[in-house]
Structures are given as C-alpha cells and as structure tokens.
C-alpha cells in the first residue's frame, strides 16, 4: 500500500472518530441546555486540534510502519515513500470532489446564518460540512487507489 494511501486512511479514521465524539457530546448537552447557552467554542477547538494532532501522529506511525516493513522485506523504503503523478492526480481528484461537497454544505450554513439560527448551529453546520467534505475526499482517494483512476 503506498504511503500516501496510508495517510489517507489515517485521515479517514481520524475524521470518522473525532467529529462523531464531538457531535455526540454536544448534541447530548441539548437535552438540558438551549442551543444559545451551549458553550461550544472550546470543545470545537479541541476537536479540530485533536484531529490535526492525531492525523500527524498517525501519519508518523504509518511512516515508521512503512519503513520497518520495507526493511523486513528487503525492499527499498524510498519506493514505499515515493509520491508520483498517480498519487498527485488521485489526491487532486479526491480533494476536488471533497471541496464540492463542503461547498454544498456551505449553502446550508449560509441559510442558517440568514435565518439567524444560534451560533451553535451555524458553527456545527460549518464543522459538519468540513468533516463530510474531508471524509468524502478520503473515500474517493481510497476508491481511486483500489478501483482505478
């Protein structure tokens, strides 16, 4: 598996776990607190920060694992870490589709803003758009690696 694909898997897992935890916790608070009174700022910043840190740590671990497995097979680590035109084209393809999905979500965020929803809903919708766009981009990239591009 190319290193770029491993990094994509890391991104997919992190973006599939951290935001779910955030939304479960925050939507759970709606039971006894109104949206206007929910203090979402720090949890949201922590969720974003955790995603970034976990993605970096996961990528480093994937890199170490790739290097060790290349060494054990007696192969070249540079081949495993190399990034060529296929990786670049797949990455662009996934990012383009992910961006389209995020952009569509932004229309919903715009609507919430115009309808003067609470900041909590606007921030959550914004985060959700970003998360779904990233997840779709990662899934498209992995599908492209396996099914062809």
């Amino acid at each position: 598996m190319p290193f770029e694909e491993k990094v994509t898997w890391v991104s997919l897992v992190v973006m599939g776990v951290v935001p779910v935890a955030y939304f479960v916790i925050m939507l759970g608070r709606l039971g006894d607190t109104s949206a206007a009174d929910i203090s979402y700022q720090w949890p949201l910043l922590i969720a974003i920060g955790a995603s970034v840190v976990l993605t970096i740590v996961g990528s480093i671990l994937a890199g170490i694992g790739t290097g060790i497995s290349a060494e054990l097979r007696g192969g070249s680590a540079s081949d495993e870490f190399g990034k060529d035109e296929r990786d670049v084209r797949i990455s662009r393809h996934g990012d383009r589709i992910g961006f389209s999905v995020s952009s569509a979500g932004m229309v919903g965020v715009l609507a919430l803003t115009m309808l003067e929803y609470e900041y909590f809903w606007i921030a959550s919708a914004l985060y959700l758009s970003f998360v779904v766009g990233t997840l779709v981009a990662s899934m498209v990239k992995i599908a492209s690696y396996h099914r062809g591009f």
Binding site: D84, R86, D87
Partner: peptide, 16 residues
C-alpha cells in the same frame, strides 16, 4: 514512479 503505479498500469487501473 512507484512500483504500485507500475502494478496499477499493468492491471489497467491507471491510465498514465
């Protein structure tokens, strides 16, 4: 390129 790309080309999964 990477060996994975050569494999993908041979299997018709990537058009270079």
């Amino acid at each position: 390129v990477t060996r994975q790309t050569v494999i993908a080309i041979e299997q018709g999964r990537y058009s270079p």
